[in-house]
Computed example of a mutant assay.
Amino acid sequence: MSDPKPYTPPKVWTWEVPNGGEFASINRPISGATHQKALPEGRHPFQLYSMGTPNGVKVTVLFEELLAAGHPAEYDAWLIRIHKGDQFGSGFVEVNPNSKIPALLDRSGPEPVRVFESGAILLHLAEKFGAFLGRPEDRPALLSWLFWQMGSAPYLGGGFGHFYAYAPEKWQYPIDRFAMEVKRQLDVLNRHLADREWMVGDGMTIADIAIWPWYGNLVLGRQYNAGEFLDVASYTHVVDWARRIDARPAVRRGRMVNRTSGEPHERLLERHDASDFETRTEDRIGSKAAE
């Protein structure tokens, strides 16, 4: 691949051509809907519109953990294919004006409530059910680590992941820059987890649920085919933590929902009932919601 040529920014930037790469079609310099399309709605109190990216997995893992713990958190999970521009439909923009997955419509109260941004959805659901929040004295640490993840993951995904795995050409400067930052973040986690099993308190919280889809899957070798490059095995405490979460049945179910890649047994395009995990086939997707 060629090295980047020196670039002199113009006085006023204009969007002339897509920026290239696998995700070029989902980026544009304006917001708002590009087409009219209503969102489907199922029969459950919670309507999730998402895709099985790390940010989407956070929410489906929490839903499945809530259900496993006995909370009335039944949900419909509708697939939003971001490569096809579903997030720019008018219905989705009404729920999330930022046109990013995941987006949640909470119909459990007297009036529907829209919630967007994955961290906000986790906090909304955890507070609604009083679960996965840790002890009251853990709240400052819980919020700190939740916001740490929300601020740090763009360096992993939009920074390192983009330039290492998705950019049309590989350039040393951005790869080195973001690899350094990702390894620093992994070191932060590794030091923190050296003498504890969970991010906060003595049990799994939404801090773990937020961090695991990004950094847990990275050290488990599932992100960007970059495990060897980043020497993820050297972060032993993060690896142990990631494996512990990965072994939970609810986490395995949550990771399947709205997933479009991987082996057929690893994905459930849409989820409308717990039985969908046992009877899934792509040509049945959505049938239960229509009953």
Rank of each mutant, 00 (worst) to 15 (best):
W13H: 08
A153P: 08
K84T: 11
S234V: 02
E74L: 09
M150E: 13
E117D: 00
M51V: 15
P154R: 06
R43G: 01
S144G: 09
F63K: 00
D86V: 01
I101C: 00
L156G: 03
Y166P: 05
F277R: 05
R114Y: 06
A210W: 03
P264C: 13
F46D: 00
F92H: 05
P18R: 15
I80A: 13
V219R: 03
A141Y: 14
R284P: 03
L133Y: 15
R248F: 08
G119A: 13
E111N: 15
E22D: 15
P213G: 07
E169G: 14
T60E: 06
A210T: 02
V12G: 00
E263S: 06
P72E: 01
W15R: 06
S99N: 13
H192D: 12
L122H: 09
T236G: 10
M180D: 12
L143G: 00
A179K: 05
A247D: 12
A226N: 05
Y235V: 11
F163H: 12
V239F: 13
N190H: 14
E16A: 09
N225K: 10
G91Q: 00
S99W: 12
L66K: 12
N225T: 04
A68K: 03
A33G: 07
G159Q: 01
A207L: 00
S90I: 06
N27S: 03
L122R: 07
P174D: 01
N96E: 04
S2E: 06
V257G: 03
Q185D: 08
G201R: 11
P110S: 15
Y173Q: 09
F160W: 01
I80P: 12
M1K: 04
V17F: 09
L104P: 07
Q172A: 08
W145V: 01
F163Y: 14
P213T: 03
A289G: 08
R139G: 02
W241K: 10
G21Y: 10
S234F: 04
F92E: 02
A33P: 03
E137S: 02
I26R: 08
L133G: 04
D76T: 02
V113L: 01
S108Y: 03
Q47S: 00
